[in-house]
Structures are given as structure tokens and as C-alpha cells.
Design a protein around this nucleic acid. Structure first.
Lengths: 202, 202
DNA sequence: GTCATAATTAACCAAATGGTTAAACTAAAT
DNA sequence: ATTTAGTTTAACCATTTGGTTAATTATGAC
């Protein structure tokens, strides 16, 4: 027999769906309650306010903006191998969670939301490890000299931007979600090749 | 003596500011009216509804998501030269209009907003000309063989993503708007170099 | 000046919205 | 069985919000 989900987790699941689809401004507490199949008062009983409920959802999702990829840059393989692993893992993960990039980007771009940026594992994890990895390989003469911060932003842009512009792409070139997924799988190979060409020492 | 702006243009200017800052859901008609320095009823007198006012603003701004860069790919220079010109013009323009990328991306990612995507000059302008330019240069053996659609997305990602993630960058690495601008100016050189390495025939 | 039309305003309205409250229900402890 | 604490509900509330209206003012044609 199936264990019934707790009220709190039912709320969180519903809030996730609605907040991700509509954003905090577009979301309606009533619709979250309806989706969860509970009374609207329960939302405030468990989470006090819309803002706090959103905080909970965002804090949970923020972890996955850079999911399990930061440790890649802590291994002792070469920079190019690390970048390969990063691109592959990142796109494979986002293919299963394609809403995350826009959810994060739209939240941090709203005024008064600076606090949320601190919840993203960026500076002390991926950025720091990326920089150190690059510096190490540069010293060994294994990579071309580039600005590592610019390089990081390029890698992120190439991996993340397609998910942000997905509506434009699918609308203009037809294709359903599966088609987009396939396109992104092919992209793994392509981006890996780009990065090799950028970094290879001639 | 200075000519006073018409009520209609005062409304449009104010609506631009507010919609760009808060999005259609976060924006308040009263604040738009206050910003324009006119009575709220005038908004409806001139534009009938919030949705139609937003439409007007978006339609105007949509033109600049790919500002005057599409014709670059219609010139008869080489693909690499065209990419150079594109990256440079695009970043120079966005440095003066850094809010545009997020405004467009957030709008097209909202459900029920498919109609807005048609207002972006993408498929028949930049995408088409980009593809043809690449095919031409490939035939002449002037560029490496890559997937041109993937390449286009990479170029766009490298140029646009930084503006979308600007809050994350400035929050984590300090720096004000001028610092970010400088960073993007340096990025022009960097991205140009990346693209050369990707496309150069060895 | 007068008349017609457009522009502008203050007041108003109904619906929606986030949030509260007091009562009722449930289940475990004694 | 009674108590106690946690959970759930229906009804309610104050505020906000997009939008309307009716009256007023400015403008331009004749």
C-alpha cells in the first residue's frame, strides 16, 4: 500500500510546480493550495507567508543550478578533461530539469532579491575550483593563455543559454521537447570540440 | 524652449521603465501613472488595458534583441569577419541596453506568451543569414565543419548570457555597472579569439 | 463667442489576493 | 473517558488592483 504524502511535502511539491511555472508574482496561493489538494490556510500554517514559501522552494532548487559539477574541477585530471566532464554532466542534468535555469535567472534578476544570490553555489565552489584548475594547467603549459573568468562565462553561456531561449527555438524551428533534448545531446559533443580548439596548445 | 512630451509618449516611457524593471506581473498600473506624472485613467484611455500597453512596449523593444546585426551577415566579407563584427556590435549595443536580454527572455518564457516570440527578428533574419553565410564559407573551404545551428547558439550564448547573469556576477565579484561594462568590452576581444580558433582551417 | 470634440481628472467599483481567525477534528497520552 | 496538542477547515477581512464612469477642462473649427 502507498504511504500518503505529508501535508507539508504536498505543499512543497505544489509550490514548486506553480512557482516555477509562474514566478513568485504570477503564482497564486489559492492555486498552490488547490494543486496540493489542501486548504489555503494550511499554506500559512506551515510556511507563514508566500515569500517564505518561495524562499523554501528557491533554496532547494538553487543547489541544482550547478549540480554535482563543482567537484569535477577538484579531480586531478587535466583542464580539458574536466571541461569535457562538466559540459556532459551539466547538459545531461539540465535535460532532465530544463526549467531550472530560467527559474534561477528570473529570480536573481528581480530587484530586492540579492539575498537569493547567496544561495547559489557559485563563487566558492565552481568559480574558485575552475580558476584554480585553469591556473594549474596553465603553469604546466597544457592550455592556451586566456582570461579564465571569460572562459568560465563562455562555458556557462554555451551550456545554459539554450535552456533560457528554448521557447524561441522550439517556436521557430518546430520540434517538441524530445527534439530539443536530442539537440542538446548533440550539443555536448559540439561544445567539447569548441573548448578543445580554444584551449589546445599549438 | 523645451517642447513638452505628449501624454502618450510620457506613458510609454514610464511603462517601459516599470515593465522592464518589474515584469508584467510585478508592474502596477498606478506606479506607471505616477512615474508618467498623469492620472491612471489615461493609461486606459490611450492603451485600453495593461496587456495592450505591455504589448506596445514589448513590440518596440523586441526589435533590439538583434539590433542592426542581421545585415552584417548579408555583407560579402568572410564568415569570420562577420562574426567579429557581430560580436562587437552586439556587445557594444547591449552595454548601453543591458536590461533588454532579460526583458525578452523573461517574456518569452512565460506561458501563454507564444505570440510574443513572433515579434523577435530571429528566424528569417539573423538565423537565416547566419546559416547561409556559414554554408557559403564552408563551400569555399574557409571554415571548419561544425553544426551551424550549434555555432549560432554558442555565439549568442557567449554574448547574451553575461547580461542575464549580471546580478550573480556583480554580487559575487563586487564591481559596479562600469566595471561590468569594462568586463564586457574585454570580452569582445576574447570571444572573437574563441571563434577564430573554432572556425580556423588548419 | 459658440459648439463639438478630445483630453483629463477624481471618485468609484468589482474582483482578486494574501492573510487571519475561531471553531472543529484527530490522535496520542494519561 | 478526558485532556492536550497538533492539524484542518470554512468563513471572513483588509488591501490591492485593473478598470470604469461621469463630470470637467482644454482645444480648435466656424
Amino acid at each position: 500500500m502507498t504511504q500518503e504524502a505529508s501535508t507539508e511535502s504536498k505543499i512543497l511539491k505544489a509550490a514548486e510546480d506553480i512557482f516555477i511555472r509562474d514566478g513568485i508574482d504570477g503564482a497564486r496561493m489559492q492555486e498552490i493550495a488547490d494543486t496540493a489538494g489542501i486548504n489555503k490556510a494550511m499554506l500559512h500554517y506551515y510556511f507563514r507567508s508566500k515569500k517564505l514559501l518561495f524562499d523554501k522552494v528557491f533554496t532547494e532548487k538553487a543547489k541544482y543550478f550547478f549540480p554535482e559539477v563543482s567537484n569535477i574541477f577538484m579531480s586531478d585530471s587535466s583542464m580539458i578533461e574536466k571541461l569535457d566532464a562538466f559540459v556532459e554532466k551539466y547538459i545531461l542534468f539540465m535535460n532532465e530539469n530544463p526549467y531550472i535555469p530560467f527559474f534561477i535567472i528570473s529570480t536573481v534578476n528581480k530587484r530586492g532579491n540579492e539575498e537569493f544570490i547567496d544561495k547559489l553555489p557559485f563563487k566558492e565552489t565552481i568559480a574558485k575550483n575552475f580558476m584554480e584548475s585553469y591556473a594549474h594547467d596553465l603553469e604546466l603549459g597544457r592550455v592556451q593563455k586566456v582570461d579564465p573568468m571569460q572562459l568560465l562565462l563562455s562555458v556557462l553561456g554555451m551550456c545554459i543559454f539554450p535552456y533560457l531561449s528554448k521557447p524561441i527555438l522550439t517556436h521557430n524551428f518546430g520540434g517538441d521537447d524530445d527534439f530539443f533534448k536530442e539537440f542538446m545531446l548533440a550539443r555536448i559533443v559540439e561544445v567539447k570540440a569548441y573548448l578543445r580548439k580554444i584551449l589546445i596548445v599549438d
